[in-house]
């Protein structure tokens, strides 16, 4: 898929999710208005059940949609104007850093970029965590229904006690995710400018590579020793396993049809 197609698909997905949020919020508001206009006082268990079935699902969907939209915008949203190159500013930053690292610029020079990467990642992780916590709210409410809902409240009060915090959590999650996105984009752009300024400096001379010397990894003799020890250990375990009945266990299971392994029962 070309960059332009990916861009379009992701923008469309983002818009769809925001639209879903808006639809659920509207439906929620309409449901709340209907309930209050319907004037079901005093409430009965049947009317409460009917109200919940109309309201709760919208709230649940709204919170989920808000969380998904928030996550989507954090991870995939593309601000307008950024048409060329890689889509995510932090990926462009990572690529610039890798290019600088390959040219062997000093670590001190690259330290601000490393700090920048850590900052962006932790902000993104915090956004994901906030979204997940908000998504748990409906579940939390339903599990602690008796404690959180005032028993002497009217039906409207009952509905609002659930719906209002859910709306607030969903909206807060969405707002936080958008704020994280904007902040991290701004800081990534600044870091990219810094990376570009480093690239204008003359590249350091590549150090001489020693010929015939292993630069990294285990020395050859160590690999041979480790391999020999492991083969010896494996053979010993096999022999011991034959005598302690392990091989018989393998046979006894292998000659039977494992119905749960093949999906039957």
């Amino acid at each position: 898929m070309s960059d332009k197609t990916t861009l379009t698909v992701r923008r469309v997905m983002g818009m769809v999710l925001l639209l879903l949020c808006a639809v659920c919020a509207a439906a929620l508001v309409i449901a709340c208005v209907q309930i209050s206009l319907g004037g079901e006082h005093p409430f009965t268990p049947e009317s409460v059940q009917a109200a919940w079935s109309r309201v709760a699902i919208f709230v649940f969907l709204f919170v989920l949609a808000a969380v998904a939209a928030g996550l989507w915008h954090v991870l995939f949203f593309v601000p307008s104007g950024k048409q060329k190159g890689l889509i995510f500013p932090e990926l462009r930053l990572a690529k610039a850093k890798a290019r600088l690292f390959r040219k062997q610029y000093s670590k001190e020079l690259l330290l601000p970029l490393t700090k920048q990467e850590i900052y962006v990642r932790s902000m993104r992780i915090s956004a994901v965590a906030v979204c997940l916590l908000c998504a748990l709210y409906p579940l939390y409410y339903l599990c602690n229904f008796d404690r959180l809902t005032p028993t002497d409240a009217t039906l409207n009060g009952q509905v609002i006690a659930f719906a209002l915090p859910a709306l607030c959590f969903g909206a807060a999650a969405l707002a936080y995710c958008c704020a994280v996105r904007i902040l991290t984009d701004i800081s990534c752009e600044r870091a990219l400018l810094y990376a570009k300024s480093i690239m204008l400096l003359p590249a350091p001379a590549a150090p001489a590579r020693p010929i015939g010397k292993v630069r990294r990894g285990l020395p050859k003799y160590a690999i041979i020793v480790v391999r020999s020890v492991l083969i010896a250990a494996a053979v010993l375990m096999i022999v011991f396993g034959i005598f302690n009945g392990g091989m018989h266990d393998v046979l006894q299971k292998a000659i039977k049809i494992c119905t749960e392994c093949i999906g039957l029962g």
């Binding site: 492991l230 083969i231 250990a233 494996a234 053979v235 010993l236 375990m237 096999i238 022999v239 011991f240 396993g241 034959i242 302690n244 392990g246 091989m247 266990d249 393998v250």
Partner: peptide, 10 residues
């Protein structure tokens, strides 16, 4: 399960 561990290790 020494036998199975030994087989997989080998």
């Amino acid at each position: 399960p020494y036998y199975v561990f030994g087989i997989i290790l080998l």
